[in-house]
């Protein structure tokens, strides 16, 4: 009994000595490490703000309402805009979303439900491979698969190339989100006698929807910013204007499908594509305009991100009551 007391006292003494000798050094180390991490954080933030600031500074000078509403004018004429590229970006992104979402989400359901079946393993493996394929290779693939047989470049081909690019992201995020849905939720539905497919659609998908939507929008944001796959597929089209196409179509009494076909079945432009083309032209006004295109592209991507956040937040609030 006394021995224990003595030991513990001795132990406490030792601790106290250690504390006394260590405290100043520990404080210094702490201060150094803290400033180091702070400094590095600042360093990492510099390029971000620099880029954003510079793009806003350079692009803002060129930006006006015409830029959003007008087609490009020939060189030497003032004004003009990139309406064609904005429309093209929207068309290609929408097409990509339409092509990529159903197979991506359904494949993810399969992979989440049967991860260890041969098909499940194959899916996971090929998703990994696909996400590692350079985007220009995907563009080339779409060129061989669609542009070649059809004989011309088109927004459709661009959309498909983008869809292939988006597919791994959609499969991956959806699968991860489905895996996060508690097992108990699935069992709760099955125990009521629900078949697996109904359980997946009615219970699992809504539970995973937040994550799926976020992943989907990120995939879109990424696709909207891609240039390379469009080089061989959408090509570019400075005269592209959906308004004109629709007006002409209505004037010629074309059906809805015919109009739709004209919208997607011709070469289109996109913001990154235009940016890339403008930036390498030898005319200063085009180069100046390319800064404005960069700004528009940035705003477009940012908008998608913000929308995704808002949507997820609203849904979360609704679910948590």
């Amino acid at each position: 009994m006394t021995a224990t007391t003595a030991t513990s006292t001795r132990f406490q003494q030792l601790i106290a000595e250690q504390q006394a000798s260590l405290t100043p050094r520990r404080k210094i180390v702490n201060a150094v490490m803290l400033s180091l991490t702070g400094l590095m954080t600042l360093l990492a933030l510099i390029p971000l703000f620099w880029i954003v600031g510079y793009v806003i500074y350079k692009g803002g000078q060129q930006l006006n309402l015409d830029f959003f509403t007008q087609l490009p004018r020939p060189l030497g004429m003032d004004g003009g805009g990139v309406l064609h590229a904005i429309q093209g970006t929207v068309v290609i992104t929408l097409l990509a979303a339409v092509f990529a979402t159903p197979p991506g989400v359904l494949a993810a359901f399969y992979a989440a439900r049967f991860p260890n079946t041969p098909l499940g393993v194959a899916l996971r493996f090929s998703t990994d491979v696909l996400s590692g394929v350079p985007s220009i290779v995907i563009g080339l693939f779409a060129y061989a698969l669609i542009v070649k047989p059809m004989g011309h470049y088109s927004g459709l081909a661009g959309g498909i190339a983008m869809a292939i690019l988006m597919l791994p992201t959609i499969i991956r995020t959806t699968e991860e989100m489905l895996k996060l849905v508690p097992h108990a939720l699935r069992e709760g539905s099955l125990a009521l006698g629900a078949p697996e497919w109904k359980t997946s659609i009615i219970v699992l998908f809504p539970a995973a929807l937040n994550g799926v939507i976020t992943g989907f929008l990120l995939a879109i944001a990424r696709a909207a910013g891609e240039t390379a796959p469009l080089l061989f597929t959408a090509l570019g089209n400075e005269r592209y204007d959906i308004g004109t196409i629709v007006r002409n179509g209505v004037a010629q009494n074309q059906s809805f499908l015919q109009i739709l076909e004209r919208i997607v079945d011709q070469p289109v432009d996109s913001l990154p594509l235009t940016l890339w083309k403008y930036a390498q032209q030898p005319y200063p006004e085009r180069v100046e305009q390319s800064w404005a295109v960069a700004l528009v592209l940035m705003i477009f991507v940012l908008l998608i991100n913000v929308l995704a956040r808002l949507w997820v937040e609203a849904r979360k609030r609704r679910l948590q009551g």
Binding site: P182, A184, L185, E187, G188, A191, V203, P206, A207
Partner: peptide, 13 residues
């Protein structure tokens, strides 16, 4: 034969 589970598992509805 219905079932109630260990952790409450209401559907996200």
């Amino acid at each position: 034969i219905g079932m109630v589970f260990q952790r409450p598992n209401p559907f996200p509805k």
